[in-house]
Amino acid sequence: MGLLEVENLSLQYETRNADIRALSNVSFAVNPGERLGVVGESGSGKSSLGSAILGLVSFPGKIKSGRVLFQGKDIALMNDKELEKMRGEGATMIFQDSRASLNPLITAEEHFRDVFRYRFGKESKQASREKAVALLKDVGITDPEERLKQYAHQLSGGMAQRVLIALALAQSPKVIICDEITTALDVTLQVQILDLLKELSEKKETTFILISHDIGVISYFSERVMVMYAGMVVEEGATSEVLSHPYHPYTKALIASLPTGEKEMLNAIEGEPPSLSQEFTMCPFAPRCSRREDRCFSEKPPIRVRDNQKIACFFDI
């Protein structure tokens, strides 16, 4: 049994004009201490997946099928209290815009105190400060006492991201979902944050699900990778395998479109991602695929296993 299992999950946003199928039949599992990368372009459903795992889907979103199991327990069947416990001690999420994730009216220290009070009951200021300082040291902040006094606007992007990671760690969650957390950071800081998360996953056996559009980041951080397109998983496997010899034409095309450092034309993918307002009865990537055949337009390719990699494509390319 995995720590977290997602089975056949479909999520739909029901708007007045159309039902947007953000996730279609997504299944995967993660084990304790594992680092999973989820890569895809905007609209591929990777952020929706993050909120679905935490049971954060709200109107107009609706789970149409499937379930999320946390330690074997279906989160849809949890009561509010269990759900709340799962959302701090079980799984938690860190978002892209770190400064916007902090309350601008209170200091970093008050954020920590709130979490502690909520989780562990009333305790002295001194005690919670000591715990907060220890957490900030864990995430590589060298002057934690000073930082605790500061407000969100006084923290740099990298510093705010570290504070958020420390806040997430305050409840020692088993799974941390990171949604594009390094996208707004400079490359030199990005490496620092990714190294920090790697260290945490090794030292504390924390499971990470890293959502990113950046293949380089996914490659550097994750052990396993899931490639998403139009709300579906199109390829999944060990990161080193998938990225060095991808089987799905979309993964191939995505890697081929990266800049090479030479001033020449890039191999861009033709066309645009499909609209998600209808159910797919065909391969969603077919119209843009260089290897498409008639069959791709009449049938949806099922997920199959090829050399330990799961792919949703009919062909052995």
Binding site: M159, V187, Q192, D195, G216, Y220
Partner: peptide, 16 residues
Amino acid sequence: SMPRIGKEKIVGLKGE
């Protein structure tokens, strides 16, 4: 510091 496919270790910069 640019993360890339196949790169396992990056010795980046310290500080901001």
